[in-house]
């Protein structure tokens, strides 16, 4: 089908993450029009009710806005988009730290590891 969804999270949540990721990476820019509900439904293989929910939630998160009769757009409020980027960073760090702690690593070992990782990256 359109997208392979992970089993452990609601589909609408995965679509919000996907669109938010595209906005953060700059694939969708401030003020860009999002696909119509029907278009995005067909593209992702998901029902239109779910896409409507995705757009409504994104409006509530202030990262999208709907304009009467025109559709839904990425917000032009770059402050909000910056907030989104920071929030995403926190989410990923949180889950990284969680996984590492479960394996028995201390925060110190993690930051040492990250510094070491960064050196390795620069050598390449």
């Amino acid at each position: 089908m359109g997208i392979d969804f992970q089993p452990d999270k609601p589909i609408y949540q995965q679509l919000i993450d996907r669109l938010a990721g595209e906005i953060i990476r700059g694939l969708r820019k401030p003020g860009d029009k999002l696909p119509s509900v029907r278009e995005y439904a067909v593209e992702t293989g998901v029902n239109a009710n779910t896409i409507q929910r995705v757009y409504r939630k994104m409006e509530q998160m202030n990262i999208a806005e709907s304009r009467r009769g025109q559709g839904t757009f990425v917000t032009e409020d770059t402050g909000k988009l910056h907030e989104l980027r920071e929030k995403m960073k926190e989410t990923y760090i949180h889950s990284f730290v969680q996984d590492m702690s479960d394996l028995g690593f201390t925060l110190e070992e993690m930051s040492e590891g990250l510094a070491h990782y960064q050196e390795g990256e620069q050598d390449d």
Partner: peptide, 15 residues
């Protein structure tokens, strides 16, 4: 609802 199954049980419908 499919969303409820995924939210409450962290599983897709088949699992």
């Amino acid at each position: 609802s499919v969303d409820n199954i995924r939210t409450n049980h962290h599983l897709d419908v088949e699992s």
